[in-house]
Amino acid sequence: MTGTHVLPHIRYEDLPMTRDRGVGWAALRGLGPVVRGDDWYYLTRREDVLAALRNPAVFSSGIAYDDMISPVPLVPLGFDPPEHTRYRRILHQFFSPQTLGALLPSLQSQAIEIIDEIAARDSCEVMADLATPYPSQVFLTLFGLPLEDRERLIGWKDAIIAFSLTTDPSSVDLTPAVELYTYLTEAVGRQREQPREGILSDLLHAEEPLTDDEAVGLSMVFVLAGLDTVTSTIGTTMVELARRPDLRRALRGDPEGVAVFVEEMIRREPAAPVVGRVTTQPVTVAGVSLPAGADVRLCLGAINRDGTDLHSVDDFVLDGKLHKHWGFGGGPHRCLGSHLARMELRLVVGEWLARIPEFRLAPGYIPEIIWPSPTCTLPTLPLLLH
Rank of each mutant, 00 (worst) to 15 (best):
111 A>K: 07
125 E>L: 08
302 A>N: 08
296 V>E: 02
115 I>A: 07
78 G>H: 08
308 T>M: 09
62 G>P: 00
130 L>V: 02
286 A>G: 09
47 E>G: 10
319 D>A: 09
122 D>L: 12
246 D>C: 09
48 D>V: 04
170 S>M: 09
209 P>K: 14
243 R>H: 07
385 L>K: 03
83 E>N: 08
153 L>P: 11
323 H>C: 06
175 T>Y: 02
324 K>F: 06
144 G>H: 14
115 I>S: 06
183 Y>E: 12
168 D>I: 03
84 H>E: 04
289 S>T: 14
206 A>Y: 02
156 W>K: 03
301 G>W: 12
3 G>P: 09
140 L>P: 13
123 S>Y: 11
105 P>I: 02
275 V>P: 04
108 Q>F: 10
352 W>E: 01
96 S>E: 02
186 E>G: 06
140 L>Q: 09
46 R>E: 01
54 R>T: 03
360 R>K: 15
289 S>Y: 11
7 L>P: 09
213 D>K: 05
281 Q>S: 15
229 T>Y: 00
252 R>E: 13
294 A>F: 01
109 S>C: 08
273 P>G: 15
293 G>Q: 06
230 V>Q: 10
206 A>R: 07
256 E>V: 13
72 V>A: 06
101 G>W: 06
57 A>R: 01
373 S>F: 06
257 G>H: 14
200 L>Q: 07
362 A>D: 14
217 G>F: 04
290 L>N: 02
33 P>G: 12
37 G>S: 12
240 E>M: 13
289 S>R: 13
46 R>A: 01
277 R>T: 09
112 I>W: 02
233 T>F: 04
46 R>K: 12
60 S>D: 13
279 T>A: 10
256 E>H: 15
210 L>A: 03
72 V>R: 11
346 R>E: 15
64 A>E: 08
270 P>N: 14
59 F>S: 03
15 L>C: 12
320 G>K: 08
78 G>T: 15
350 G>M: 06
29 R>F: 06
49 V>R: 07
7 L>E: 00
364 G>F: 07
93 Q>M: 01
300 L>G: 07
29 R>K: 13
2 T>F: 02
73 P>H: 08
164 S>I: 07
52 A>P: 13
116 D>H: 01
359 F>T: 02
100 L>N: 14
36 R>H: 03
108 Q>R: 15
217 G>T: 02
159 A>S: 14
116 D>K: 11
57 A>Y: 02
20 D>M: 03
250 A>C: 06
363 P>I: 05
7 L>T: 08
